[in-house]
Nucleic acid binder design. Structure first.
Lengths: 65, 65
DNA sequence: CTCTCATGTCAAGTACGCTTTACTTTTAAC
DNA sequence: GTTAAAAGTAAAGCGTACTTGACATGAGAG
C-alpha cells in the first residue's frame, strides 16, 4: 500500500512529529507507514483523510490488493 | 465504525458467505465486521470498495473517530 | 567541529484483524 | 413441527498495527 503522506507533509512543512500529533499516534507509527513497514488501520486512514481534507483514496493507493 | 455491508449485500441478494468469497476472507470475518465486532483492515476496506464499486467513505462511516 | 532537529530503525510489549473449528439461534419452506 | 440454509457467537492461534524507549545517521546553524 503506497501513500502520499510524505508529500502532503512537505506541502505543509510538517515534520513526522507534527503529523503524528495531528493523527494522535506516535512518530514511529507515521514513519513506519510512510516507509511502507505496515498499513494504517481503517480508523487511522479516516483520520488522515480528515486532517488533509482528502478522500482516503486520494492519500492511500491499494495498487490492486 | 458503522458500515453498509448488510444493505449492500441485501441489494444484491448475497449471503455473508457470498461476500466473504468476493472479499477473500472468512464468513466469520464478514459477520464480525457487519455486527461491529471490529473494523476491517485498510486493504480489506479497499477490496470491499472495489467489489461494490463505491468509495470507502460510501461504505464505511467513521462517525468522528 | 559541535549542537540540534528530523528521520530512520530496532526491540519488546499490547491489542486487534483474521483464521479454523464448532456450536447455537434465527428464518423461511414445506 | 421438521428441515435446511443463513446468521450469530466463541475459543485458540497467528500475524500485524501501534506503543514506549532507545540509539544511529544526515543536514543545517552556530
Amino acid at each position: 500500500m503506497k501513500n502520499r503522506l510524505k508529500v502532503l507533509r512537505a506541502e505543509r512543512n510538517w515534520t513526522q512529529m507534527d503529523l503524528a500529533r495531528a493523527l494522535d499516534v506516535s512518530r514511529q507509527t507515521v514513519n513506519a507507514i510512510e516507509t511502507g513497514k505496515f498499513d494504517p488501520s481503517l480508523p487511522l486512514a479516516f483520520k488522515a483523510a480528515r486532517v488533509f481534507g482528502l478522500a482516503i483514496e486520494q492519500i492511500f493507493d491499494d495498487e490492486q490488493g
